[in-house]
């Protein structure tokens, strides 16, 4: 029930936004969301954006995962 999916903000109008998820556009409330800009990703839950996705952190996590793999190759 706490499912939240990442979508890209394509338009902001007051505290409402249009968010694209896998090619589908959804309306979402920004009433609970920290400041966000068009083009950023948000986590959508029950019609609300509940957080801005930190894409740098996402890349960092993937880099770390890659590193775990590399260590495995050496040892």
């Amino acid at each position: 029930m706490c499912l939240a999916i990442p979508g890209r903000v394509i338009e902001i109008d007051g505290d409402q936004a249009e968010v694209e998820i896998g090619g589908i556009i959804r309306r979402a409330s920004l009433a609970l969301c920290p400041p966000v800009r068009v083009g950023q990703y948000v986590l959508l839950h029950a019609g609300f954006a509940i957080q801005v996705v930190d894409e740098e952190e996402a890349q960092e996590t993937l880099r770390l995962l890659q590193e775990i793999g590399d260590i495995g190759e050496i040892s």
């Binding site: 609970l32 920290p34 986590l43 957080q51 996705v53 930190d54 894409e55 952190e57």
Partner: peptide, 13 residues
């Protein structure tokens, strides 16, 4: 889950 979770959570919510 660093891309979504900050230590302080979501202060607006």
């Amino acid at each position: 889950y660093r891309r979504g979770v900050r230590e302080e959570g979501n202060p607006v919510a």
